[in-house]
Amino acid sequence: MFKVDLSLDHAPVTKALQELEHKHLPFVLALTKTRLAQRVKKGTITVMKQRLDRPTPTTLNSLFVKMATKTKDAQVYFKDSWASGIPADTYLQQAVSGGLRPHKRFEKALIARGIMRSGQYAVPTAPFMNQYGNVSRGTMLKILSGLGAAESAGGYQANATDSDRSKRKGNAHRFFSGDVGGTQGVWERKTMGMGDAVRPVFIFSDSAPRYRTIFPFFKIAGNIVQANYAGEFSAAWAAAIASAKP
């Protein structure tokens, strides 16, 4: 989270400003901080589009601005909760500061079921990745269902069973985990005319994927604030004077 923190000491005080009522300054600073935070968001999204590898619309929409008040600073932050997978503020930390990738919810489900060791990571293969370089949520749910690793919620059990309906969906036959030719992972089984053929969906790796710093969020935000502070303060001051009662 980046906080736009300005105080009266930061204000470019002039003689004319000193002669005006002091009550205008809290409003001016709050408006300035909010507008600067909005600039930080816009500039950060531009950098994300340039430097992240095929960022999803969800990722690009994960940045929020909390407006400043007369007593509170403006904030620019990544959404800290998500419908599925890793929260945006968690997985984007690796892009901001680098480091090892944490386990995703899909991987945690495999580990909890004993399908994958706690020190392993599931690396997707190209045929199953979408235009953003990810495996779709729908495909991952089918895999977890077929492997008996899906979570149940509200009394609904998503795992494949021996029922006729479950057999028709075929996830338990289609997906399996194990060692094929010395490679551990999750595999897709396809029935062919001459028998079954298999191909890997996820390969299990014993080392965590490591991220390099892609965009230094705090440095970018600081540069945006520094470059635009004077202009935004002047505009906010003009707005305050224009709206002030005579």
Rank of each mutant, 00 (worst) to 15 (best):
Leu141Ala: 13
Gly119Lys: 08
Gln131Asp: 09
Leu63Ile: 15
Lys49Pro: 02
Tyr91Phe: 12
Ile45Tyr: 09
Thr56Phe: 03
Asp162Glu: 09
Asp89Cys: 04
Val96Ser: 08
Met48Val: 11
Lys108Thr: 05
Val76Gly: 00
Gly154Pro: 01
Lys66Ala: 11
Lys41Gly: 05
Ile86Cys: 06
Leu63Phe: 12
Asp164Ile: 09
Ala153Phe: 14
Leu100Gln: 15
Lys49Gly: 09
Leu144Ile: 03
Asp73Gly: 08
Gly85Val: 00
Lys66Met: 10
Ile45Phe: 11
Tyr121Arg: 07
Lys41Val: 06
Asn159Asp: 12
Val123Gly: 00
Ile45His: 12
Val123Thr: 02
Leu52Thr: 10
Gly154Tyr: 13
Gly114Ser: 12
Lys142Thr: 12
Ala83Pro: 15
Val76Asn: 01
Tyr77Ile: 04
Gly98Tyr: 04
Gly85Met: 00
Pro57Phe: 01
Lys167Val: 07
Phe106Gln: 14
Tyr156His: 14
Gly133Thr: 08
Ala150Gly: 15
Glu107Gly: 01
Gly138Lys: 02
Gly98Lys: 03
Leu100Ala: 15
Gly138Leu: 01
Thr44Asn: 02
Lys42Leu: 05
Trp82Val: 10
Gly138Trp: 02
Leu141Arg: 08
Asn159Val: 08
Asp80Lys: 15
Arg54Asn: 15
Pro87Leu: 04
Ala68Asp: 02
Ser166Ala: 15
Gln93Phe: 07
Phe128Pro: 00
Ile143Pro: 00
Lys49Ala: 09
Lys72Leu: 06
Ala160Thr: 14
Glu151Arg: 13
Lys108Pro: 00
Ala95Val: 03
Tyr121Pro: 00
Pro127Phe: 06
Arg168His: 15
Ala158Met: 05
Leu147Cys: 04
Ile115Leu: 13
Ala149Tyr: 01
Pro55Gly: 13
Val135Arg: 03
Ser97Gln: 14
Ala153Leu: 12
Lys70Ala: 07
Gly148Ser: 11
Lys108His: 08
Ser97Trp: 12
Gly146Ile: 04
Ala95Phe: 02
Gly43Tyr: 04
Ser136Asn: 11
Pro102His: 13
Phe78Gly: 00
Lys42Trp: 07
Ile111His: 14
Arg168Val: 13
Asn134Leu: 06
Ala149Glu: 00
Thr90His: 09
Gln50Pro: 13
Gly114Pro: 03
Gly155Gln: 14
Tyr77Gly: 05
Ser163Glu: 03
Lys72Trp: 07
Phe128Ala: 00
Arg54Trp: 05
Asn61Thr: 12
Met48Phe: 13
Asp89Ile: 01
Asp73Val: 08
Ala109Asn: 13
Leu92Lys: 01
Asp80Thr: 12
Arg54Ile: 05
Thr59Ile: 02
Ser145Lys: 01
Lys104Asn: 08
Lys142Gly: 08
Lys70Asp: 12
Pro124Leu: 00
Asp53Ile: 01
Lys41Asp: 05
Leu63His: 04
Thr58Leu: 01
Ala160Ser: 15
Asn130His: 05
Gly148Ile: 02
Pro57Thr: 03
Met116Lys: 05
Ala126Asp: 11
Lys142Cys: 09
Val76Glu: 01
Phe106Pro: 09
Ala109Val: 08
Asn130Phe: 06
Ala83Ile: 11
Gly114Asp: 10
Gly114His: 13
Ala112His: 09
Arg168Tyr: 11
Ile115Asn: 02
Thr59Val: 04
Ala83Val: 10
Leu92Cys: 03
Ser84Phe: 06
Arg165Gln: 07
Asp164Pro: 10
Gln157Leu: 06
Pro102Val: 09
Leu63Met: 15
